[in-house]
Amino acid sequence: MKQLLVFVLFAGIFCWLMFSPIYKHVWVIRQALLQQEADYLLEIGASGRYGYIDGAMVGESRTRLASYGFQPAMLIYEVGSTTGQEGDDPSSPLPRGTGLKLVIRYPYEGLLNIDRLIGVEPPSADARMAAAGMKMSEYVP
């Protein structure tokens, strides 16, 4: 009986040792892609040409991230500014020197559930990874 118990415990730890790095790698890559997309949107949106991040830019971003395997409907975008002015309104772009803020959130989708094999509780189903940034607007009316 002891041998069976040792085998079951060893098998669980062995599976975790083999597959956990793969899931952690996917998590790191997803986080990096989200941050790269946030930086790109801020660079474009805060440029002298725009001064905002509107729905069309967010739609293009969803399409780009979908090409990497993200589910577009699960992406949450939060656009704001340092002054409280809307950062997603093309009719009133943020003037030069105003900070344009962006947060992109995406759920973990059970990615870290394998950690249960060693007794570590994974993030809840509501938890989301996030990428954020702020860039000063360069738009001059």
Rank of each mutant, 00 (worst) to 15 (best):
L100D: 01
G12N: 12
V6D: 08
L9R: 01
G97R: 05
R96E: 08
W27M: 08
Y50Q: 07
V79W: 08
L17F: 13
S91W: 04
Q31W: 05
F19Y: 14
S81D: 06
V58G: 00
L75E: 10
Q71A: 14
Y23L: 11
Y52A: 02
G59V: 02
G45L: 06
E86N: 08
L17R: 04
G45H: 06
F7S: 09
E78Y: 10
S67W: 04
I53W: 00
G45I: 05
T82A: 12
R105F: 01
G55H: 09
L111E: 14
G97L: 05
A73I: 14
V26Y: 09
G84N: 09
T98W: 06
F7W: 02
W16Y: 15
W16I: 00
D89W: 00
I22S: 10
G110C: 08
R64G: 01
H25L: 05
I53P: 02
G110Q: 05
I22E: 05
Q31I: 04
Y23G: 07
G55A: 15
W27S: 11
S81K: 05
L34Y: 13
Q31R: 07
W16S: 00
F19P: 02
Y106E: 10
T82K: 07
I76A: 14
S47Q: 03
I53R: 00
V26A: 09
P95Q: 03
L9G: 06
T63F: 12
P90S: 04
V26L: 11
Q85M: 12
A11L: 14
S91G: 06
R105H: 02
S61R: 09
G84E: 05
L65I: 07
T83W: 12
S81V: 04
D89M: 05
T83S: 15
S67P: 00
